[in-house]
Amino acid sequence: MSTEAPQRHRLEDEFTSEHHVYEPHKVGLPPIGSYVRELWRRREFAVELARTNLRSQHFNTVFGQLWLVINPILLAGVYFVLVDILRSGSRGDEFFAHLMAGLFAYYFVQQSLQQGVRSVVSGGRLILNTAFPRALLPISAVVAAFMRFVPTFLIYIPVHLITGLPIGPELLWLIPIMLILVVFTSGMTMLVAAGQVYFRDIKNFLPYATRIWLYATPILYYAREVPDRYDWMLSVNPLAPIITSWSAVIDKGSTPPLDDMLLACAWALGVFVVAAVFFVSREREFAVRL
């Protein structure tokens, strides 16, 4: 059709404020370029929503913020004692540091998922009232989880120093690894947030899933200690290569193993792309599903 080209051009204007054309694309994707542009334009919304949600959970009070760091430290302590008893008291200080750093990284994932799973469903009125890229809602949950992660990581730093784990420029590897974790977690959060719209009991299964996932990830133990017959568990777990790289930097101050890093990147990008396509292609249906 000769009219095809100009219409496609106008579709670019999806969310812009002046001229809009809406045409069928229920199962397909909206134009990616303008979607991403609008998403970026409203990044303030994701940050503000994260901040507001943390505030409404009383994290702006002194005790609220204190709890934010005390809670993960307590849990790290409890897990350490538990694992140490099971290993007949053979665990040293450096294992406590390993456990703490791994656990805090894992809580970032867990918090994102737990806040994110509700993000779309509880966005009810806003979704019914306003046209905006819905991916902002799960992204905001990831932002909130990151805001909670940062103070816990600051607490970890003295532990790292006291236990005498290596310090060096290799520690900078933690930044790209964290980036991989953020990409992976954003993908997972979009998946559960969209899934929750269709199946409202995902929220109820999620705590069990994240607990099992924690046990299947080399945090409460070193990856090298896993017996051969459980190797498959690490090879199917997308968090395993990410956390293994993370721990390699934390524990030994070494460059993370290349194969783990590549695997981690592949998982993160793969999950993110699949999740983003799923979420964005479904998001315009959310208004009638709430």
Partner: peptide
């Protein structure tokens, strides 16, 4: 622009 058209524009 909240609900996509199934047909038309």
């Amino acid at each position: 622009g909240i609900l996509p058209p199934t047909a038309g524009r």
